[in-house]
């Protein structure tokens, strides 16, 4: 996994990162990072260094915040398991609300952390 992170970071130039998920991309960049965060299952000890290096390469703080938040709260891969424990409705509600709330968290972080 760390190798993949290394690979991705080697291929993504700062201009590419800034163009895709920079602060200037605003909502579009946040949609991108939130979807990545929701779908992937990356342990924190890999995700945080990755987030840090993306930040250093020109990613926006709100875009990274929504990535971290959705990564931790939204579990697309584990949804079938969650459904077996709590049913479809609770799973959809919890993940859906968590996804939406991640944007609120990101906006707050975008304001507080500069």
């Amino acid at each position: 996994m760390l190798a993949i992170v290394g690979l991705v970071l080697t291929f993504l130039s700062p201009t590419t990162v800034a163009g895709l998920i920079g602060a200037g991309t605003r909502f579009v960049g946040m949609i991108i990072t939130s979807l990545i965060g929701a779908v992937t299952l990356i342990p924190g000890f890999v995700a945080f260094p990755l987030a840090k290096s993306l930040l250093e390469r020109g990613a926006g703080i709100a875009q990274i915040a929504v990535f971290v938040s959705t990564l931790m709260m939204v579990g697309f891969v584990t949804a079938p398991l969650e459904i077996r424990y709590f049913g479809r409705k609770v799973t959809l509600l919890r993940n859906g609300l968590a996804y939406l709330y991640s944007f609120i968290v990101a906006f707050i972080i975008g304001v507080v952390v500069k």
Binding site: G44, F45, F48, P49, A51, K52, L55, I61, I64, A65, V68, S69, I104, V105, I108, I109, V112, V113
Partner: peptide, 17 residues
């Protein structure tokens, strides 16, 4: 871990929110 990578301000703000 989040604080060490992304800064205490980031981590604390995210935690409270």
């Amino acid at each position: 871990f989040e604080a060490s990578a992304l800064g205490a301000r980031f981590a604390i703000t995210r935690w409270i929110a």
